[in-house]
Design a binder for these strands. Structure first.
Ligand SMILES: [Mn+2]
Ligand SMILES: [Mn+2]
Ligand SMILES: [Mn+2]
Ligand SMILES: [Mn+2]
Lengths: 219, 219
DNA sequence: AATATTTTTTAGATTTACCTAAAAATAAAT
DNA sequence: ATTTATTTTTAGGTAAATCTAAAAAATATT
């Protein structure tokens, strides 16, 4: 099957709202899609007839098994293009998302397989999110929030729970990227801010608010 | 300005029918766009109000100066992506066109400039067609048919006037691609076939029929 | 010049993806 | 248990891009 750009964006939005697990409300979807609830209802009816979602009026919607498959494919395309943009075209990691929003809809299957191969089958995108393989499987890491990392324990930044422009700006200013080695040098009880050590960089402090959105993994 | 995929495809089609020089008929356009003349008329009215074409009912259409600019930009994107697909993703030259048809509409200007840079500012696409630079300028080669290349004159294959599957098969069998260095070693008066020399390859003969569709440039 | 043919445009519909305003269903508060 | 507020759906409409069928204009043929 082949889906319109609009259908694909809805499917991906439902997936991003955890619609493969819990029901997603019409309003939540309208909010994310920057559209009106009435438009969402129209689209939900359409996606239901295409058997991509499970939907009963007033009950919210969830992705069907087929819907999850379609969603994972879009996510795969999105993240592979993000990797390409960052790795090959040297875009900053905060610039890549908008461009990948467009590229993800170019749906030639052979193109994506060749791109994957060309990139060396990366398993994580530049934001640390896992890239589904051609079967939709993706590798998960056991991550902890930076706020919960024990003192003096070397770890690697592997994800972000806030990927807003403001957050990315802050991180770039602090020289933190996905893959950066970090360690907590000190924790401040007053505001729960943490002092970070990055090899080769001077020590610096980050707020609890920021640190709780930075995921790391260690051992 | 930002144009729809449909508008862009029409502009490019007009350009490909030499609509920057001669008027293009409604039927010719309908033919190329695989649509009905009535639909073409609708679109021509729209492109006229956007000042991309010069159009009077029953008189055909031509691109305006702005229309040519837009067209060259689409052609630039198309050919850069074709180069990427062939050079980096190792697609065959006959597979790349359809994919580039989609990619050309991803219209982030910085993306295209970065891609151009990443590819090393190529000036010709894998079919030998010139790639407009960011200002719309493109380098033209004085090409001659291989049949008209003088004996023992080193030249480079730079274009094809027949891009059929059969032609490709023949060329691939003979190790001829765009950019291949060739030289005519001998011409046979009987059937006007020519013996070709490619550095590092054994000599071989090609028919006049094939040779007249291969464009080369020399000096 | 009159007629026939081809080309192009208009008229009127359809589909997709939106919208606003109002009605209906659900959830929360009294 | 009512009333009130929130959420969601229906009803009806718009704009883009297509279509078919019919009318009009331009060309070609007698
Ligand atoms: Mn998108
Ligand atoms: Mn990402
Ligand atoms: Mn196209
Ligand atoms: Mn080409």
């Amino acid at each position: 099957m082949n889906y319109s750009v609009s259908e694909e964006n809805y499917i991906k939005a439902i997936y991003n709202l955890n619609g493969n697990k819990q029901p997603v409300s019409t309003n939540a979807l309208a909010d994310i899609m920057a559209t009106k609830p009435a438009s969402v209802t129209d689209m939900l009816k359409k996606l239901k007839t295409k058997k991509l979602i499970i939907y009963q009026p007033y009950q919210g919607c969830k992705l069907s098994a087929e819907g999850v498959k379609v969603a994972l494919n879009i996510v795969r395309r999105h993240r592979l293009w993000e990797y390409f943009l960052a790795e090959k075209l040297k875009f900053e990691w905060n610039e890549i998302h908008v461009i990948a929003e467009e590229l993800e809809h170019v749906s030639n299957p052979k193109l994506i397989e060749r791109l994957d191969e060309y990139l060396g089958f990366p398993r994580f995108d530049p934001h640390g999110d896992p890239i589904p393989d051609h079967e939709g499987k993706m590798q998960m890491l056991k991550q902890v929030k930076l706020t919960q990392l024990p003192l003096h324990t070397p770890a690697k930044v592997s994800g972000l729970t806030d990927q807003s422009t403001d957050m990315l700006e802050l991180l770039r200013h602090s020289n933190i990227c996905i893959g950066t080695d970090v360690e907590i040098n000190r924790k401040f009880g007053f505001d729960h801010s943490v002092e970070i050590k990055i090899p080769g960089n001077p020590l610096f402090i980050i707020s609890e608010q920021a640190a709780q959105h930075i995921l790391v993994h260690h051992e």
